[in-house]
């Protein structure tokens, strides 16, 4: 059972994600956060427990956005090694560059079909992200076809 976190303010996207997880062959347990503040609180509670296998992090969120969460995670000793996969609608160069600089592990532009969403999550769950080093910049964006 892989323990994963998702932080996304979009209810539809959270629902798509949960539905997609049901079709992923790897068994998972998901902890949902509606924004960055919630995510950081949830991470605090779980700090005593085994850390999550991966955090899927949306960028554009109210209260605390993905960039702020990423920075806090990487600056907190107990959290800094948790793999973070950016999960955003935008694939703007600025966002991609900034999150790579901040130490995210992979960047996924939210897929435009359910089928691709399932494949994306499956791909992330099979990746060895911890404790292996981060990919080179050219392999940072995960594209699923």
């Amino acid at each position: 059972m892989k323990n994963i976190f998702l932080a996304d303010d979009d209810a539809d996207d959270r629902e798509f994600f949960i539905d997609a997880l049901k079709e992923v062959s790897i068994p998972t347990d998901i902890m949902l956060s509606n924004n960055g503040l919630e995510l950081m609180k949830n991470l605090e509670i779980l700090i005593q427990h085994p850390p999550p296998h991966v955090i899927f992090l949306d960028l554009n969120m109210p209260f605390k956005d993905g960039f702020q969460c990423l920075q806090e995670i990487r600056n907190t000793p107990k959290l800094k090694d948790i793999p973070v996969v950016i999960f955003s609608t935008s694939a703007s160069d600025i966002f991609v560059d900034q999150t790579y600089e901040q130490g995210a592990n992979y960047y996924i532009q939210k897929p435009t079909s359910f089928r691709l969403l399932v494949k994306s999550i499956e791909k992330v769950l099979t990746l060895e992200m911890w404790p292996s080093p981060r990919p080179q910049r050219e392999n940072y964006i995960l594209s699923i076809t």
């Binding site: 539809d12 939210k110 079909s113």
Partner: peptide, 8 residues
């Protein structure tokens, strides 16, 4: 964002 929703 909304476009992707329509597609999905």
């Amino acid at each position: 964002e909304p476009l992707r929703k329509i597609q999905i």
